[in-house]
Nucleic acid binder design. Structure first.
Lengths: 145, 145
DNA sequence: GTTGAAAAAACAGAGGA
DNA sequence: TCCTCTGTTTTTTCAAC
C-alpha cells in the first residue's frame, strides 16, 4: 500500500465507474499496472465493492433518522432489522445503548409506525436528521485537496 | 420512475461498475434504452454518484465511533468537521444534541485526541462501534430478494 | 421502445527493461 | 513490479424503424 494505491482508491471513491484506462492517464501509470493493482486491492478486501449512491428523498424516503436502541435480545433484534426495509445501517455500539441504526421512511408518520413495530425488542431514542452537512468523506489518507 | 428504474437502481447499488450492456441483459431491455434511463436518473439526481466502498480497517482506521455533539457555534463547527479527516459523516439532528457524526481513527488513542480537539466547540457523547451488523442496505423499494 | 452495423474504447496478454 | 505494444473483446454510439 503506497501512494499510488491511495490515488487509485481516491479515484475510485470519487467515481467508481471510471475506466482503468482513464485512471491510468489520471495517475500516470500504465493501464495493465493499474488494473493489476485494483485487482489486488479487491482481493485484499481494501475495496469492498462499488455502489451507486442514491438520493433517498428522490425515492420517496423524505424522513431519515438515527435510532438508539437498548435491547437484551440481540440475535432476534438484528434479524428484525435485517428484514425491515426501513433500516439501512445497523451498528452495535458501546455506551448506554446497544445499537445505533439509520432509518429511512417516507414520512414521520411511517417512522412512528416503524418505532412502534420495534417496541417489543426494547426501548429507543430517536434523532431525526434535519440536514446532512456531508456524507461518505473519503477515508483514504491524504485524500483532501 | 417505474419498476424498470428500480431494477436499474438496484443493480447499480449492488455493483456500480456493471456495464450498460450487461445490465441490459440482466433486466431484459435494450442497451440504448437502459443507458438513456441511467442518464435521466443521474440528471434527476436520483443517482448522486458512484463510489468504491473501502474497508477503513484495511487503511489503518481500526476505530470507528459515532459522536453526538452539542454546540452553539454551528457554522464554525461544521467547517471544523469538514476539515477534520476523522469525520466522514456529519448530520444535523433533532433532540438533546445538535449534531451526530461518524468518526474514523487509527486507534482509541487518536479518537481521544480528536475529541480533545473538538472540546472548544461544545460537549459530546461518544459511542464506539463494536461491530457493524450491516451497512448501506438498498433504499430502493422492493429491492429485497 | 427496438435492432443492427460502425466506431471507439477498454481490456488482456506477451515480451522485455 | 512496471512499461510498451498489439490483438481481441466489449461497449458505446448512431442510424433507421
Amino acid at each position: 500500500m503506497d501512494l499510488i494505491d491511495y490515488k487509485i482508491l481516491s479515484a475510485l471513491h470519487e467515481n467508481a465507474r471510471i475506466s482503468m484506462s482513464e485512471m491510468s492517464r489520471a495517475i500516470a501509470m500504465s493501464q495493465p499496472a493499474v488494473t493489476e493493482r485494483v485487482r489486488k486491492l479487491e482481493e485484499q478486501g481494501v475495496i469492498r465493492g462499488y455502489r451507486a449512491e442514491l438520493a433517498p428523498d428522490k425515492l420517496g424516503k423524505k424522513t431519515s433518522a438515527f435510532v438508539l436502541f437498548k435491547t437484551n435480545n440481540c440475535p432476534d433484534f438484528t434479524r428484525f432489522c435485517e428484514e425491515a426495509p426501513e433500516v439501512v445501517d445497523l451498528y452495535r455500539i458501546s455506551g448506554e445503548y446497544n445499537y445505533l441504526m439509520k432509518v429511512l421512511t417516507d414520512t414521520t408518520e411511517s417512522l412512528a409506525q416503524f418505532l412502534d413495530s420495534c417496541h417489543p425488542f426494547g426501548f429507543s431514542t430517536t434523532m431525526i436528521v434535519l440536514s446532512t452537512a456531508f456524507e461518505d468523506k473519503s477515508p483514504v489518507p491524504g485524500a483532501m485537496e
